[in-house]
Design a binder for these strands. Structure first.
Lengths: 260, 260
DNA sequence: AGACATTAATATGTATGACAAATGAAAATT
DNA sequence: AATTTTCATTTGTCATACATATTAATGTCT
């Protein structure tokens, strides 16, 4: 194992890549122990801090875990779905917030993916998952609920729907899409009227799933999607109108400064 | 900013988490410069190597980028879809290979997701994307193609289908699902007959997309899924039969050792 | 004055050496 | 035989130094 001193990349990045490739290619197996930091430093002909930086990079991706002590060291980590979830969610959340993804695009993606689960969920959803959905629907109908709590409950309900498909890979792939939407959803102010509509649709959704009716599930999701987009749109136009109003007021009395 | 010396987690992990939270919460904005390593070391009351390990963790997740020189430092990185793709693909690939996910489960997830794109793609696919699909279909009909090249072409074709939905979020979410399947697909040996069938189905798929026929696109994808699963199943049973045969042969002549 | 070379300052990248702390295995003791 | 002690190994952390890249300021020459 050697690295290229002329490469533009850092040594630690090159070393991390070399080890990562070895893991992905199956050269290093799960739970297998890597050489100690000192040995790696020898092999790659770099210092120990440099090796450590490389190992921390891999640890950040959950590719290895480290253990102190006599029989310790760095071990190839069995990547679990739960760990992968978390990374997916943060990555997806940042992707949406940093790339000015419109609400419509994100919403379309989310419901397209959920609808992909619908037929499977109608067929396989467990009583437990159905109960989770009913419980969340009940919570959503409570009057005192904050908008954030309402959105969080919405995410839980939709996660139950996705998990209802009984396919771990599907659940994993959709976790990001569903949860990453939450910050965008949180920007919506839910009126009593809109909550009522959403709860009704959620109830339809649970009913359709309980009946094992894939077509009705799909229809309900379509309705939910269009209603959600309507809601978001009305929020956006309301904000724009408000901003315009404030701007005109400012023009009329230019002497007044911000009192925020 | 302070860290907990009594925590079980490494200092570098704690510092990475603190900075990551600041980025995710919007406390640190895109392209904003972090304090220098020396300043961070002061603020967190740790040494510079420890700060560097934390920064390398964040760099591994593409959350920051670093630049050398007088005006250099660590900057909050705008997470691009392309970078996120790569991480998604490696993560998904490892998830599948390390958790003994069955071909059926992965295949089901993949086609469920692709079918979610189908109606959108039928409506929006660009001529360019259609041309890509046609070109790959043509390549797949070449006789000299290796199995690996055939699978790679398959991935390219399906990526074009997914991208045809014209939704970046959707494309990103599905990149992992589609590409992560390739190693599993590579295990299939394609006979001339099976390639013929697949190419025919791919042609149907392109035709349906060209006609903007969502229903036919969906049907074709369903056929492709069931055929793919049939193929995989036949491979598995063939292997099992072969293994059984070899085992019996071994039993008959126990003196023979492995000659591999 | 303007163009170019020099220097200095700042930051990351890397190396060296040291010590602390955790951990398990071997050795010593009861 | 069971328990305690010792010890070797390995990661975690620190301090310091130097190399290198990059920019800004400075100086020099035409």
């Amino acid at each position: 194992m050697k690295i290229d001193p002329d490469s533009t990349a850092d040594f630690s990045a090159q070393i991390a890549k070399a080890i990562r490739d070895a893991i992905v290619s199956g050269d290093l197996l799960v739970d297998q122990r890597l050489p100690s930091e000192a040995e790696l430093a020898d092999q790659f002909d770099v210092s120990r801090p440099t090796v450590r930086e490389a190992l921390k990079r891999l640890a950040a991706q959950s590719l290895i875990r480290t253990q102190r002590g006599a029989t310790g060291g760095a071990f190839v980590n069995r990547l679990r779905f739960e760990e992968a979830y978390d990374q997916q969610v943060t990555t997806s959340t940042l992707l949406l917030s940093m790339n000015s993804v419109s609400f419509d695009v994100a919403c379309e993606a989310r419901y397209a993916l959920e609808r992909a689960c619908a037929p499977l969920a109608a067929q396989r959803r467990t009583p437990d998952q159905l109960a989770t959905m009913r419980a969340e629907i009940h919570r959503q109908s409570q009057p005192g609920l904050t908008d954030e709590a309402f959105c969080a409950s919405d995410v839980t309900l939709h996660r139950a729907l996705v998990d209802g498909a009984g396919n771990k890979v599907l659940s994993y792939q959709l976790a990001g899409a569903v949860e990453a939407m939450q910050p965008l959803m949180n920007m919506i102010t839910f009126t009593a009227r809109s909550r009522e509509v959403i709860v009704a649709l959620h109830t339809d959704l649970a009913d359709a799933l309980e009946a094992g009716d894939a077509a009705r599930t799909d229809e309900t999701l379509l309705k939910l999607e269009s209603y959600t987009r309507e809601l978001a749109h009305s929020v956006v136009t309301a904000r724009a109108a408000k901003a315009k109003h404030q701007q005109e007021a400012k023009k009329a009395k230019p002497k007044e400064r911000k009192t925020v």
